[in-house]
Each structure stands twice: as structure tokens, then as C-alpha cells.
């Protein structure tokens, strides 16, 4: 008699266990920070706590490096009228990274571009083409070499302005990825306003599939990349722009001319384990134009996807087996 009950109980419990244990828990959170929409999708038992920690971190980072918050370090630096300003360790780190990348890209990425972008106002209702004289005046204030740093303090000439929007999201993505890793999260997709960072691989051990935005139709993608444990960042002329007399003026500026970058490129995508680098590189490469950009990638071991104005797509060697075109509007070139 006893045995029968044991057997029944065992069968019951076994069945229940099989039914109950199904997959890893997914946590997904949408939120807004740094003037953009963000989403973190993480998997695992500790995912919810880790994601909450990430959101808190990003809000705190924004408090340090925001240009518009009056209590931020960067606001203080921009309004110090040439005086030295004491910065938090975090702000110092972001500024140092920005300077390093500006130097590396020979100023094609420049964190002091703000006077120019303010003048043009692209992405706001007041977007306009300024007079050349205005552009020339603003240009004098744009030069990353104007930023002086000494330990955790920095100084900026009067009128010059730091805007870390160009690497802020990338920096945040790197830090968030680290927070997730430290919390034991092995799989996650971090989307910070179009900057992607993927952690690990999908459940079945397959790499993540990341779409690259179609410059002709910003809601769609024209190609995909199969990647794991890396960051994918795209910059293009479709993000923020305004049009006048049939000409498109995008939000990425050429620090040389003071005009929106007008090259043979529609968009640049960089794949790198460091999202901060990728963020700055996409801007710089876009400004450089395809020829110089490809040389730069070769010299600095950068993996990138270029979309040219003639719908030709160029992919660097290391990405070719991960890349696939999904739109017939584009042609692929080795």
C-alpha cells in the first residue's frame, strides 16, 4: 500500500516540476534619461535588481554630465567664465575619455562643438542656416584643445561649451554593461537611445541579431549584424535634421567648416567592445567621409559598416561574416 502512494506522489511531483520549470525570467524596462528613450532587457534571477541599479546609475550620471541641469558639473564648467572648476571623479573620467577620443580622431569628434550646434538649432523648432559670420564666431570657440584639465579640475575659455552628448550614451552603456556583469547577469540587451550593447548570447547560444537603421526610412532596418558581448552604435543624417531648398542639414557638424557634415556617407555603424569609443568614432567617421574613414578604421583596428549616398554599403573585414543585407535597395561592396 505504501509503495503505491509513494509512486503516485513521485509521479505527481515529477510532472509538476516539469511543468513549473520553464525558461529564464526576462526583465525589461523602458525609461527616459539623457534626452532619449532607453530600454534594458536582462535575463536571470537577479535581473530586476540589476536593472534597477542601472537606471539609478544612469540618472546619477546624467546629474553629473548634463549640459542643461543647473546642478551638474558640466553646467558649472560651462558657466565658470574661464575659472577652474572642481569635478566629480565620474565627470573627470568622461571628460578624459572625450579628450582622448578627440585627439585620436584629430578633432573630427569634438566635445566642444556645442556653440555651433546651438547656433544651428537642428532638432529644435528654431533650426536655421546662420550667416557665415556667425558660424565663424562660433567656430573660434570650438576646439577640444581649449579644455584644460588638471587632476579632477578643469577650465574652459569664456563662451566655450562642453557637450558630452556625443559620448554620454556610449559611456553609460559601458558602465551599465559592467553593472549587469557584476550583478551576475549573463544575458542582456541594452538600448540607450539607439546605442546598443549586448551581453552574452541568446538563450540557445546564438548571437544576438542587431538591425542597422535604413537611412531612407528611419523606422526600418536595411541590414543585420550577428554579434555577442559587444556594442553597436550607428550615426547618420536621418536622426535629426532639417531641410531647406531641397538640401538636408543633419545634426552632425564638421568642426573644420562649422557646417553640418556633408560627405558621401549616409550613416556609419561601429562595432566595438567599448561603447564610448564606438559612440565617438561613428560621429568622427561620419565627418571624415568614406575614404578617410576607411583608412582610419584600418589604422586603428575599428570594425565598421558604411552606408554611402549611392546606396553602396561597405563593411570592414572583421564584420563580413556577421553582416547580412536584408533590403534590396542597397548593394554590398567588399
Amino acid at each position: 500500500m505504501k509503495k503505491r502512494w509513494l509512486c503516485t506522489a513521485a509521479v505527481t511531483i515529477l510532472m509538476m516540476a516539469v511543468l513549473a520549470g520553464c525558461g529564464q525570467k526576462e526583465v525589461t524596462q523602458d525609461f527616459y534619461a539623457m534626452d532619449t528613450a532607453m530600454n534594458i532587457r536582462a535575463y536571470g534571477s537577479n535581473a530586476q535588481d540589476a536593472v534597477n541599479q542601472c537606471v539609478r546609475y544612469i540618472n546619477q550620471l546624467e546629474q553629473d554630465i548634463s549640459r542643461t541641469r543647473e546642478d551638474s558639473d558640466i553646467y558649472a564648467l560651462n558657466h565658470a567664465q574661464g575659472d577652474w572648476v572642481e569635478l566629480s571623479e565620474q565627470t573627470t573620467d568622461v571628460l578624459e575619455q572625450a579628450l582622448r577620443l578627440a585627439e585620436e580622431t584629430e578633432g573630427c569628434f569634438d566635445p566642444t562643438i556645442a556653440p555651433l550646434s546651438d547656433l544651428w538649432g537642428i532638432g529644435t523648432e528654431d533650426a536655421r542656416i546662420p550667416a557665415q559670420a556667425e558660424i565663424d564666431t562660433a567656430l573660434e570657440l570650438v576646439n577640444y584643445q581649449n579644455l584644460q584639465m588638471n587632476g579632477t579640475s578643469a577650465a574652459l575659455p569664456e563662451g566655450a561649451c562642453i557637450d558630452l552628448g556625443g559620448i554620454g550614451k556610449g559611456y553609460a552603456a559601458d558602465q551599465v554593461a559592467q553593472i549587469l556583469r557584476d550583478a551576475g547577469v549573463e544575458r542582456a540587451v541594452i538600448t540607450l537611445g539607439g546605442n546598443i550593447y549586448v551581453l552574452g548570447e541568446k538563450e540557445d547560444g546564438v548571437p544576438w541579431t542587431i538591425g542597422i537603421t535604413d537611412p531612407d526610412s528611419a523606422g526600418d532596418y536595411f541590414a543585420t549584424l550577428q554579434v555577442s558581448d559587444t556594442s553597436v552604435v550607428t550615426s547618420g543624417d536621418y536622426e535629426r535634421y532639417f531641410e531647406q531648398d531641397g538640401e538636408r542639414y543633419c545634426h552632425i557638424f564638421d568642426p573644420e567648416t562649422g557646417w553640418p557634415a556633408q560627405t558621401d556617407l549616409r550613416s556609419v555603424t561601429v562595432v566595438s567592445e567599448c561603447s564610448t569609443d564606438a559612440d565617438a568614432y561613428t560621429t568622427a567617421l561620419f565627418v571624415m567621409g568614406s575614404e578617410r574613414a576607411m583608412e582610419f578604421c584600418e589604422a586603428h583596428d575599428i570594425e565598421a559598416v558604411f552606408v554611402k549616398t549611392d546606396h553602396v554599403v561597405h563593411v570592414t573585414e572583421g564584420l563580413r561574416d556577421k553582416f547580412s543585407l536584408t533590403s534590396s535597395e542597397y548593394t554590398y561592396e567588399e
Binding site: R4, T8, V11, T12, M15, M16, L19
Partner: peptide, 16 residues
């Protein structure tokens, strides 16, 4: 599907 599969252990309980 889950309800159907669970019918078997449930059936064992009432059957016993």
C-alpha cells in the same frame, strides 16, 4: 496543453 498533461497526475490522485 498544460491542463491536459496535468490531468494525468490528477487522475492518479483521484484514481488512487
Amino acid at each position: 496543453p498544460l491542463l491536459l498533461v496535468s490531468a494525468i497526475p490528477m487522475g492518479f490522485v483521484t484514481g488512487a
